[in-house]
Every structure is written in C-alpha cells, then in structure tokens.
Design a protein around this nucleic acid. Structure first.
Length: 586
RNA sequence: GACCCCGUAGCUCAGCGGAUAGAGCAGCAGCCUUCUAAGCUGUUGGUCGGAGGUUCGAUUCCUCCCGGGGUCGCCA
C-alpha cells in the first residue's frame, strides 16, 4: 500500500468527476499530477499540485481549478479538510485512522511493504566494479561496488528483473603488464636475481604468491621460453588469481555478481565479436575511414595525423567521432566496449546501467551513442559516475602513497571497521559528490555516526519487544497479536508522525528506483531512525508516552505494533543497502 | 580550447519545476545527572557562486561568466 499513490488516484478521480459534471470540457493529461507530504505539517497531511499542472491545458486559473478539485476531494473517505493554498496547491487533511490503516498495511505486508511493480518485471542490467584484474580493489572501487550492489537491490525491490554484471577487463596492455610482473615474481621464486620491478609493471607484494604458485605448477619450465610462449600462460594464471582475490574482497562486503563477462572473450575464439560489431555499424553507415583533428590544448607528444576507422558518434550527440582501432591495428578499448554493450542488448536488456569511476566521465557520451546506434534508439544506458573517496582517521587525512603500489585497499578498510559502516557510509552521499570517509567516526557509538544511529534504532526497536516480553510474561506479542492491536489508541502526534513516515517508504522506493539513487534510502532511514529515537526520548519526560505501559496492555500492544512497523521498514531499507539490521548493539 | 561533475547556514551535506529552502555538527540558552542502553529540549544563522533567459512559478531547466575537481586517439 502506497498512501500517496492512493491519493493520486483520488485526485484523478476528482478530475474525472469534474469532466462528468461538465466543469471540464474533456479529460486532461493526468500524468504530471503528484501527491506528496507537504513541506510543513501545518499544511495538512498530503498536498497535490494537480490544479497547477492542469491549469494550462484546461485554461482555468490554478486557484479556481483547485477549489473545484478540493471540493470533490473533500468527499473522499478519511479526508477531514481540503484547502487551497499558495499559487494553487490543495492541502488535504486526513483523520488519523488513515495513517493507522497505513500501519496496518505495513504490518500485513511485512517484507513486501514498499515493494512496487514499477519495473513490471522488465530486465535491467547493472554493471559495476569492472576493474582491470591487476590488483586488489581499493577504497574507490569499493564505493562503486557498494553503490552498484545497493542500486541492484533497490531495483529488485521496485519490480525489475536485475542482472548484476562485472565486465572483466582482461584484454589489453595492462593485463600483459600484469603477466610480466608475475613472471618476474615467478623467476624470483625460483631464486633468480630480479632486482627492482621496472617502471610500468606492477610492483605490489600481492603478486609474490602468484609467482610462487606458478613454480608449483610449472617448475622451471617457463624460465627460458620466449615471452610469446609464457605470456599467455602466465597471464591466464595471473588473471585467475586476481579475479579470485577481487571476488573475495567483494564477498567481504556481501557483493556477488551473476555474470562475469570477459573482455577477452569478445575477440577470442572463431567469431570475433568486436569485428562483427564494427561491421554491423559500418553497414548501418555509422563507421567510416577518416581523420580526426588533434585534441585542442594538450596535444599528445606522439600524435600523428592518420586515416583511421571511426565511429560516427557525433550523429548521436557526442562531441567528436571516436577511433575504433589503434595505430598498431588492434581495437581500442572503446571498440570492445561497443561489442560488449551489443552483447547486453542481444541478451535482451533494454535498460542498462553502468557504474563508473569519476575519471571515466568523458566516456559516457560515446558509449551512449553506441548503444543508440546499435539498438536503433530502443535501449537506454544510464551511466552513474562515482566520485572519489577521501579517507580520514579522526579528522586527519590518511596518507596514501601510490608509488611502490601501496594504497589503502578496500579489504584493509573492511577489516578495520567492518562491512556495515563501509556500506552505509558509501551510500550516505550522492554518487556524484566526493565522499569523506572517516575510519574513526564510522565506528563511534554516537548520534553523530549515522551508521550507528540507524542500526541502533533497529536494535532499540527490538529491545522494546524484549522488554515488553518481560513486562507481560505469557502474553502473546507476535504478529497475530499485533494484528489485533487497537491502533485507535495511537493518537499522540509523535505516534502519528511515525505512521506518516512509515507511509512515505513505498513512495521513496519508487523515487529512488526511478532516479537510480540509492542514497535516498540511506537518508530516509536516517530520518525515520531520528523520529523513532525522538519518540523514544519523549517517554523520558512524559512516562505516559513510553512504549511499554505496565498497567495498560492494550496501549502497549498498539505501540508495539507501531514499533514493529518502524523496525520492519528499517530492516527492509537496510536490506536494500546491504547493511545488517542487528537486534542488539553489544 | 572542448566536454563532464561540483558550488546551498561557520562546517559536513539533503532538497522529484512549486508554498516562508531543510537536517546534523558547531554556536547560544535551558534541562537532565537518570532512565525504556550510549543524554534531552529550544534557538541564532541563507541575496541557494554571479548575471541573464524560459515559466503562472526556478535552488531545480537553458545560456554566459567566476571558482574547485575530472577527462580529452594508440590507458582501461
């Protein structure tokens, strides 16, 4: 049950009634009508912009139209008052019974409360992490990983059929460099003198065991072979080892992908899908041989003007056409990426979401152009850019030296503070804003730490149930008992406010899913937790507002129902974020 | 030079084209010093970077400018 959606229907019904009455000449477009919680509580319980968005089409002044709609709405069940305000808003007041029905629905629906059929079972592909398998994930990758995972959860909750996918960048120069780095470690493990790892290779210690493992499997067999022979062998082993490590890092955050798609597989084997894709585009007239002007400003030193194979991305909104082949004849990363997205389209995905790091922002238009070209405009690609994470400890920046391959890995952070603070904090900021992550603050048990604050609200709710069981030994406090609770005993304004906040949840899920913004869930939970703590605290000054009233089992049961509603939504939201809903904080 | 992101209270940040722009922290003023577990309540504070434009209405959309960050064929 979504109370706001119900009222959108009521408003539409009111407009339809005006058409029947002859007050409106014909049915206007109702799609822009919204019902939302008003900014100020004094404005009532719900507000609609209907008269404002319909004024133009109907040719009736907003306030006049608002009066007409308001008059119809006044007759809707539970509505106690309607009033026209400001430029033409209609404020609607409902009796508390309406919010009690919302709470009842929330309890009855349980885990399904807040689910919507927005997605109508449509397939969505969410691609995230997708790093080169050349080393452990660092904290920035972690943010993208958590974001993608939470977004996928959110879309599932909103009724989409979601596939979580990782594009393994196992082709190209970087994995060759990885292979050479591992080869040195292999030689080292055999007692050869290796010296310092050369510039351009990966010096990190994490490759030492990979080299050693190769000696177990191949002995000295690879040492004297030419590079062309050992490289594929070492590379495959190295990639396997790195992917295993990356999966383990992700598993520590409870992140699992359904599909790992290998970039190398696109051009390996008998059918070169990259070539095939270029041919498809060429036949459609989107690929040509031509020249590009050098980039203005910073011209690369080795720039040479040459004729090359170009994708006409400018025809689809990009700034310049993009090369598909490097000077050595091999495909660009972009060419492979086009083939990859073609694969997604051919696998039936009309909706694609890619989660990329901030440094890939300039790449968005060309891939969207490719998707438009490949699908004839029928498939859509949304790219979410994940900004940097800055690490702090007690307000002081954590120094990271990139030289010597030393950086703070995701695993180090997860091991230090635990997965929950990492996941929650990564989502407690818009994806396109830089995030400050303080290793000390996120494990503080205080109000200032949002992770604790929200988890604590859940734990506190559970604690109320434990205390109630003690206060009323032998009395049933289960779902069935709560179902029979006299919710009409809930009349305190703080209680009503909590019920309203619970009622916002389904609407919030929809909004967050539509905009691909899981951070909204985190902020909402923080707010809900705040209101719950606040009501809890009011019981300090006003004992009659406590959840457990020793000599009044009836009101206690009603309040327990409310607490159950809050706990349920908190649990549901935390599940989307991938944060554990703990039952106690010890 | 071009493109993308960001610019909102002292600080950190929310804010689907709508009403008098919000929250937390800090500040200020009280309360509590015990209970239902890690305090509570109230409050000060803003020309939403600047200038135009579209609109009945702009923090939100468009253009230009300023400031910060990112990117700009043969890295992925």
């Amino acid at each position: 049950m979504n109370p706001y959606a119900i009222f959108v229907d009521h408003v539409r019904g009111a407009v339809a009634a005006l058409v029947r009455d002859g007050e409106l000449a014909r049915m206007p477009d109702l799609s822009r009508i919204a019902v939302e919680p008003p900014r100020e509580a004094s404005h009532g319980d719900l507000a609609t912009n209907a008269a404002l968005v319909l004024a133009k089409e109907t040719g009736i002044k907003p306030r006049v139209l608002a009066e007409k709609i308001a008059a119809k709405l006044a007759r809707v069940a539970h509505v106690t008052k309607t009033e026209v305000a400001g430029p033409g808003f209609i404020n609607i007041a409902v009796e508390p019974a309406f919010w009690r029905e919302v709470l009842e629905a929330a309890l009855a629906e349980g885990e399904d409360f807040g689910r919507t059929d927005l997605g109508k079972g449509e397939k969505v592909n969410v691609e995230y992490v997708s790093t080169n398998p050349t080393g452990p994930l660092h904290v920035g990758h972690g943010r993208g990983a958590v974001f993608g995972d939470a977004l996928a959860n959110l879309l599932v909750h909103a009724g989409y059929a979601v596939t979580r996918e990782y594009y393994v960048n196992d082709a190209g120069a970087q994995v060759d460099a990885l292979a050479r780095s591992v080869f040195l470690r292999y030689c080292e493990a055999l007692g050869e003198r290796v010296g310092a790892i050369p510039e351009g290779l990966y010096p990190g210690d994490y490759l030492v065991p990979v080299g050693k493992e190769l000696t177990d499997r191949h002995g000295r067999a690879l040492v004297d072979k030419p590079e062309a022979e050992w490289l594929p062998i070492v590379r495959a082993a190295a990639i396997d080892a790195m992917m295993a490590a990356i999966r383990a890092d992700l598993a520590a955050l409870a992140i699992r992908h359904e599909v790992f798609f290998s970039e190398r597989s696109l051009s390996a084997g008998p059918a070169d899908q990259v070539a095939a894709t270029i041919e498809v585009l060429r036949k459609a007239g989107h690929v040509y041989e031509g020249r590009l002007p050098p980039p203005k400003g910073q011209v690369p030193e080795d720039w040479e003007d040459r004729e090359q194979t170009l994708f006409r991305s400018t025809a689809f909104g990009d700034d310049v056409d993009r090369p598909l082949k490097k000077s050595d004849g091999s495909y660009t990363y972009f060419a492979a990426d086009i083939a990859y997205h073609r694969s997604k389209i051919e696998r039936g995905f009309r909706n694609m979401i890619d989660v990329w790091g901030a440094d890939h922002g300039g790449y968005i238009k060309r891939v969207q152009a490719a998707v438009a070209a490949l699908s004839g405009g029928k498939a859509s690609l949304d790219v979410k850019i994940i900004q940097l994470v800055r690490l702090f400890r007690g307000g002081e920046p954590v120094k990271m030296s990139k030289r010597a391959g030393e950086f703070v890995t995701l695993r180090e952070v997860v091991d230090e503070v635990g997965p929950d603070p990492v996941r929650f904090m990564m989502l407690f900021r818009k994806n396109d804003a830089v995030l400050d992550f303080d290793l000390a603050k996120v494990i503080e048990q205080s109000r200032e730490n949002p992770v604790f604050y929200v988890q604590y609200a859940h734990a506190r709710g559970c604690s109320v149930f434990r205390n109630a069981a003690e206060a009323f030994p032998g009395r049933a406090l289960d779902a069935k008992a709560l179902d029979a609770a006299r919710l009409d005993r809930l009349s305190d304004h703080g209680e009503i406010a909590l019920m309203k906040q619970i009622g916002v949840w389904p609407r919030l899920v929809e909004g967050a899913a539509l905009t691909h913004e899981p951070h909204r869930v985190a902020f909402y939970l923080h707010e809900l937790a705040g209101e719950f703590h606040s009501q809890w605290n009011r019981g300090k000054d006003m004992p009659h507002l406590r959840f457990i009233i020793g000599d009044d089992p009836e009101i206690t049961l009603a309040r327990l129902a409310l607490v159950r509603g809050v706990v349920g939504v908190l649990a549901s939201g935390l599940k989307i974020l991938g944060v554990r809903a703990v039952e106690e904080m010890r």
